[in-house]
Amino acid sequence: MKPLRDMSGMMIAPVLANLGPLEELAFKPNPEEVEEIFTLSLSHLCTPQNRGYTHFRTGDKYGYTMPVFRNGRHRVWGLTAVALDHTLKLLVPPQ
């Protein structure tokens, strides 16, 4: 997918892949970077009530807006939400 750059200049290259059934995968996240792993269904991500936007300020002025995906206490935000938003536009184009 299209590379993305964060505000500090760091670049990420999102990759879309089919890994098969999640139940068969063994994740070993770095505990210094990942607190918890959770999943969200495509239908959940496409439901308007579960999507929103976070507005950031730069000093006393508007800075930028980024998408956020909500599921109870879980939030997908930041560059991860931007990559997910781009992915959803490929999988489920806006009508």
Results as ranks from 00 to 15, higher is better:
1 M>C: 04
1 M>F: 08
3 P>H: 07
4 L>E: 04
6 D>I: 08
7 M>D: 12
8 S>A: 12
8 S>N: 11
9 G>E: 12
10 M>N: 11
12 I>A: 08
12 I>P: 03
12 I>K: 00
12 I>T: 07
12 I>Y: 02
13 A>W: 07
14 P>E: 01
14 P>W: 05
17 A>W: 06
18 N>C: 10
18 N>M: 06
20 G>K: 13
20 G>C: 10
20 G>T: 04
20 G>V: 05
21 P>K: 09
21 P>N: 12
22 L>N: 07
22 L>Y: 05
23 E>G: 15
23 E>C: 10
24 E>W: 05
24 E>P: 01
28 K>Y: 04
29 P>D: 04
30 N>L: 08
30 N>R: 13
31 P>W: 07
32 E>N: 10
33 E>H: 11
33 E>K: 15
34 V>A: 13
34 V>I: 15
35 E>Q: 14
36 E>R: 12
36 E>P: 06
36 E>D: 14
37 I>G: 01
41 S>I: 02
41 S>D: 10
42 L>M: 14
43 S>Y: 07
44 H>V: 01
44 H>W: 13
44 H>K: 04
45 L>H: 06
46 C>I: 01
46 C>N: 13
49 Q>A: 11
49 Q>T: 12
49 Q>M: 10
49 Q>S: 14
51 R>H: 04
51 R>A: 02
51 R>M: 04
52 G>M: 02
54 T>N: 10
54 T>Y: 08
55 H>N: 10
56 F>V: 10
56 F>I: 12
57 R>H: 13
57 R>N: 13
59 G>E: 06
59 G>R: 11
60 D>G: 10
61 K>P: 02
63 G>P: 00
63 G>D: 03
64 Y>S: 06
64 Y>G: 00
64 Y>T: 09
65 T>F: 02
65 T>R: 14
66 M>I: 10
66 M>Q: 15
66 M>K: 15
66 M>C: 06
67 P>K: 05
67 P>Y: 06
68 V>W: 03
68 V>Y: 04
69 F>S: 00
69 F>M: 02
69 F>N: 02
70 R>L: 06
71 N>Q: 14
72 G>P: 13
73 R>A: 09
74 H>R: 14
74 H>K: 14
75 R>F: 14
77 W>C: 09
77 W>A: 11
78 G>I: 09
79 L>E: 01
80 T>D: 04
80 T>G: 02
81 A>T: 08
81 A>F: 04
81 A>G: 07
82 V>N: 00
83 A>C: 04
84 L>W: 01
85 D>Y: 13
87 T>Q: 03
87 T>A: 15
87 T>I: 05
88 L>R: 03
89 K>Q: 11
90 L>K: 15
91 L>N: 05
91 L>F: 10
91 L>S: 00
91 L>D: 01
91 L>G: 02
91 L>A: 07
92 V>W: 04
92 V>R: 14
93 P>A: 09
93 P>I: 09
94 P>K: 07
